[in-house]
Amino acid sequence: MRDDLVALPVVEIEVSRLSSAYSPRTSGEDPEHVETLLSAEGDLPPILVHRPTMQVIDGLHRLKAARLRGDSKILARLVDGTESDAFVLAVEANIRHGLPLSLTDRKHAAVQIIGTHPQWSDRRVASVTGISAGTVADLRRRGGENGNEARIGRDGRIRPVDGSEGRRLAAELIRSDPGLSLRQVAKQVGISPETVRDVRGRLERGESPTPDGSRRLQAKPQPLRWTEPDFGRVVDRDRLAMLERLKADPALRLTETGRTLLRMFAMHSIDGQEWGRVLHNVPPHLCSTVAGFAREHARVWAEFADRLDNRASDLAAG
């Protein structure tokens, strides 16, 4: 259960006041699971209840067990909000613990959430229901939902549904300056680094930057103006000096994870001549494979950097 829900106070509620209309389980309670709860020793965890309607959000089987035992009251946490948001909480809770929802139930839940939260992105709906974003998109299409011009993602950011314009701008930027990183292009254009990666790959294969099948560009694609990178600038004096300061910091130098991080930084802090030597000695038949590994490691480092930035912002705000 989410930390903010766990922090809610636990109260006793009369069993007779509760109902289970919000349950995403189309088949109702599972008798075997109820039997397991009946045989459990000690108190069961508090259920989650929507205060305005007294509908059970999470704890359908616990409520059933309490009724079979003849209990008049049950421990619960109360949440406020709309009925549609309460259903979302019910789905989230039932895919993360206890008896998991069936695939059919998760798809039914996704259809309902698409209807009540049409502004949510496919990925956000998928993260709640425990199915893939592709499956959510398929359910959305089957339901004839045209969608909004923009949707809200899992991170709360609003993104356009039609990303063709962003892809076109990214393609132009990549052609004009092939040396830009994925994150630099993404920041300037306003799309994700993964989308930029896809655009770059399509251009290298001579395809359209938009995912309209494998259709080739009608005109001969403009070649990427690749120039030999100046590896001499990869490690500058300021960064080398910063690395030395990090090596001297006891918070890193005297901890196992800190020493691991320092070794990782040191491995990437080779001079330009060494970078060039490594580049030109990669066997031709492994160039694409090594390039893929390099891009994946770059993606991991970028994600690592973003999470550190977020952590720094949270600490500053706190």
Results as ranks from 00 to 15, higher is better:
Leu103Ser: 03
Thr289Trp: 06
Ala291Tyr: 09
Ala21Asp: 13
Leu217Tyr: 07
Glu29Tyr: 12
Asp30Ile: 02
Thr82His: 04
Lys107Leu: 04
Met264Pro: 00
Ser127His: 12
Glu172Lys: 13
Asp238Tyr: 03
Glu303His: 08
Leu89Lys: 15
Ser132His: 04
His61Ala: 02
Trp226Tyr: 06
Lys187Trp: 00
Ser176Asn: 11
Glu303Asp: 15
Leu173Gly: 06
Ala109Gln: 00
Arg62Gln: 05
Leu75Trp: 04
Ser121Val: 06
Gln112Pro: 00
Gln112Phe: 09
Ser121Gln: 10
Val49Met: 04
Val34Thr: 08
Glu204Arg: 11
Asp85Cys: 01
Ile270Thr: 03
Asp122Leu: 12
Pro193Thr: 01
Ser288Gly: 06
Met54Ala: 07
Pro211Ser: 04
Ser121Thr: 11
Leu262Trp: 01
Ala137Leu: 06
Arg200Asn: 05
Ser19Cys: 08
Asn310Lys: 08
Arg141Lys: 15
Gly70Tyr: 01
Leu44Tyr: 02
Ser288Ile: 06
Met264Ile: 11
Ser132Asn: 04
Ala21Glu: 14
Thr26Asp: 10
Pro223Tyr: 12
Ala110Val: 03
Glu145Trp: 11
Pro193Ala: 09
Asp238Leu: 03
Asp71Cys: 05
Gln119Ser: 09
Lys247Thr: 06
Trp120Tyr: 14
Asp230Cys: 06
Ile74Gly: 05
Leu89Met: 11
Pro31Met: 07
Val234Trp: 14
Ser269Trp: 02
Ala7Thr: 11
Asp155Leu: 11
Pro211Gly: 02
Val234Tyr: 15
Gly147Val: 04
Leu224Ile: 05
Val235Ile: 14
Ser16Asn: 07
Arg141His: 09
Gly276Lys: 05
Phe293Cys: 10
Asp314Tyr: 08
Leu203His: 06
Asp105Arg: 01
Pro100Glu: 10
Val56Lys: 14
Asp85Leu: 06
Trp301Asp: 03
Asn281Gly: 11
His268Leu: 13
Asp177Cys: 07
Met242Glu: 12
Thr289Lys: 13
Val290Gly: 05
Arg225Gly: 12
Ala65Phe: 01
Asp162Asn: 15
Asp306Thr: 11
Ala133Ile: 02
His117Gln: 15
Asp271Ala: 08
Leu252Lys: 00
Val91Ala: 05
Asp3His: 11
Ala126Lys: 08
Ala137Ile: 04
Ala294Asp: 10
Ile47Val: 15
Phe231Lys: 00
Leu243Tyr: 14
Gln55Met: 09
Arg168Ala: 15
Ala316Trp: 08
Gly98Met: 10
Val196Ile: 10
Pro45Arg: 08
Val136Pro: 02
His50Lys: 07
Thr289His: 06
Ala126Glu: 13
Gly179Gln: 12
His33Tyr: 15
Phe293Asn: 14
Ala305Met: 05
Thr210Arg: 14
Ile74Arg: 03
Gly232Asp: 11
Arg167Asp: 08
Arg159Lys: 13
Ala219Phe: 09
Arg245Lys: 09
Ala109His: 01
Val235Thr: 14
Ile114Ala: 13
Leu286Asp: 00
Arg175Glu: 15
Glu207Gly: 10
Val235His: 02
Val234Met: 13
His280Gly: 10
Ile270Lys: 01
Glu83Trp: 03
Arg277His: 13
Gly81His: 01
Pro223Lys: 14
Pro118Ile: 04
Asp162Ile: 12
Ala316Glu: 13
Val11Leu: 10
Val290Arg: 03
Arg154Ile: 08
Glu83Lys: 05
Ser39Phe: 01
Asp43Asn: 09
Trp301Tyr: 07
